[in-house]
Structures are given as C-alpha cells and as structure tokens.
C-alpha cells in the first residue's frame, strides 16, 4: 500500500540525512519526499510518500518517531486529508497543436509560466490523478522537460475517525 506520511522535525542540519538514512539503512522505499520550513522557523515539515505492507508502515512510523529530532508523525492513511503536488512541464508542440495545448492547460487549470518561440512551460497543481492525466495528454505533444515537487498533504479540518 502507498502511504503519505508527514513528519514534523526540528529544523537542524543533518535532520534530512537522519530521515533518509533511516529509510535507506532499513531498506524502506521513498517514492517522494518534500521538505520545507513551517511558520515556526525552528520546525520543518517533511512529506514522505512510501510503500509497504502494514507491518512495514508500522515500523516506518515507529522508527521515525524514535528519531530524537522527530516531533510528530502522521500517517495520512488514517486521516481525511488533502494532497497536492506541483509539476512543471515544458512542451514543444507543433505549430498546429499550440492552441490545443493551451486549451488543455486551461481545462486543467494550469498556468503558462514561460513561453518561447518553441516551447511552453506549464505549471499544474493538483492531486496525483489530475497530474497523471495531464502528463499523459502532454506526452503526445512532445515533453522536453519535466519536474515535480513531490507531494504535500494536510489533514482536513475537524475530521475525526468514526
């Protein structure tokens, strides 16, 4: 199963290495990882997407909690939440396809963040399905470059598990 886990950590040097070292040292898989400061500059938040059976995920969350610099671990599998990821796609459509590409970007609520004689750079934000769908469509028009931020997630307000 794929899990999105958010990890609140002390914003100290070496913390990222402790977390990634835990995953590599114990043979856990990281699909994506994003890190950033929170409102409190002493604290960072990491969002990690990982896969494993229940026993592995249980170990991952316990092992994360055991790290001295980890303040809190949330496995979003257990929580109603929103997930977002951003991608930048640079496409080089043929002249006749340009309008179509722009139209598709609009349908997906993408933004053109750069445009040149040959290429458009489109920014798309959304959940995984939306991004996958958009990327699939763009493949037909010639993707030149592609980069994604990795997922971030947040629990919805006031949701308690029944």
């Amino acid at each position: 199963m794929r899990h999105t886990i958010s990890v609140l950590v002390e914003n100290k040097f070496g913390v990222l290495s402790r977390i990634s070292g835990l995953f590599s040292g114990r043979g856990y898989n990281i699909e994506s990882l994003s890190v950033g400061e929170t409102i409190d500059p002493q604290i960072s938040i990491m969002t990690i997407v990982t896969t494993g059976d229940d026993q592995i995920i249980e170990q991952i969350t316990k092992q994360l909690n055991k790290l001295i610099d980890v303040i809190k671990v949330v496995d979003f599998m257990e929580v109603d939440h929103v997930e977002r990821e951003m991608v930048l796609v640079k496409v080089a459509p043929k002249k006749e396809d340009k309008t179509e590409v722009l139209r598709l970007a609009e349908i997906f609520r993408g933004r053109i963040v750069d445009s040149g004689p040959k290429t458009f750079t489109i920014e798309i934000t959304g959940d995984e399905k939306k991004i996958e769908a958009f990327v699939e469509l763009m493949k037909g028009y010639g993707i030149k470059e592609f980069v994604r931020t990795g997922k971030v997630a947040m629990a919805r307000e006031g949701v308690k598990k029944a």
């Binding site: 026993q55 249980e58 170990q59 092992q63 909690n65 055991k66």
Partner: peptide
C-alpha cells in the same frame, strides 16, 4: 520500552 522492537 522501545516501540520499534514490538512486531519488528
């Protein structure tokens, strides 16, 4: 005392 020992 170590939760990671359990069910490892």
């Amino acid at each position: 005392i170590d939760p990671t020992s359990i069910r490892k």
